[in-house]
Amino acid sequence: ERVRARYDYEAQNEDELSFKKGDIITVLEKDDGWWKGRNGKEGLFPSNYVEELE
């Protein structure tokens, strides 16, 4: 599954994923509120910062 970033997100910890608004992220795992994904790097990000691609 792929999602698009709705906002910029700056990683707060080294296991998190940074991205810019409009970036496409491949979702690897979904957990409550935090998803694991890849966009060149791999890490956790808040699920409310992304939207599913149509």
Rank of each mutant, 00 (worst) to 15 (best):
I24G: 02
A5E: 02
E29H: 14
G37K: 01
K41S: 12
S18R: 03
E42H: 06
R2N: 09
V50H: 03
N13K: 13
L53N: 06
L44T: 11
R2G: 05
W35K: 00
G33M: 14
V50A: 07
K36Q: 05
Y9A: 02
Y49A: 13
N39C: 13
G33E: 12
V27I: 12
W35E: 00
I25W: 00
Y7M: 13
I24P: 00
G22W: 04
N48K: 11
S47N: 07
R6C: 13
I25A: 03
W34A: 04
A5L: 02
L28M: 12
L28E: 04
D15W: 15
E16R: 01
F19H: 00
D31K: 15
E54V: 13
E10R: 09
T26K: 07
E42A: 09
V27L: 09
R2H: 11
I25V: 05
V27P: 00
E29V: 11
A5G: 05
P46D: 07
G43C: 04
L17D: 00
K21A: 13
P46M: 07
K30G: 02
G33W: 14
N48T: 12
F45Y: 00
Y9D: 00
K20Y: 07
D31I: 15
N48Y: 13
D32N: 15
G33H: 15
G37A: 00
N48W: 15
E1F: 15
G22T: 02
G37F: 00
E1L: 15
D31H: 15
T26E: 14
E52T: 13
G33R: 13
Y7A: 12
L53Q: 06
D32E: 14
V50C: 05
D8E: 06
D8M: 03
K41F: 10
Y9F: 07
L53C: 11
L17T: 01
E54A: 13
K21P: 01
S18C: 06
R4K: 10
G43S: 02
A5D: 01
I25R: 02
N39I: 14
K30S: 05
P46R: 07
D15Q: 13
W35R: 00
E29C: 14
L53G: 06
R4D: 02
R2F: 14
E54M: 12
E29D: 12
E54S: 13
I24D: 01
G40R: 09
E14R: 08
K30N: 04
K36T: 07
V3I: 05
F19W: 00
G33Q: 13
I25L: 10
E29M: 12
I24K: 03
N13Y: 07
N48P: 06
F19I: 05
F45R: 03
R38M: 09
E10T: 14
D31Q: 15
L17A: 03
D32V: 10
A11K: 06
E42S: 10
D8N: 10
G33S: 12
G43R: 01
R6M: 14
G43E: 02
E29R: 10
K30F: 06
E54P: 13
E54Q: 13
E14W: 09
Q12K: 14
K41T: 11
L53P: 06
V3Q: 03
K21G: 06
W34F: 10
R38D: 09
E51V: 08
D23I: 04
E14S: 12
F19R: 00
E10H: 11
G37Q: 01
E42W: 06
V27G: 02
V27Q: 02
E52D: 13
K20Q: 09
E54K: 12
E1P: 12
L44M: 14
V27E: 00
N13A: 10
E42N: 06
L53A: 08
L53E: 08
F45A: 00
K36G: 00
Y9H: 06
N39R: 12
K21H: 07
I25C: 04
L28I: 13
D31C: 15
T26Y: 13
K20V: 09
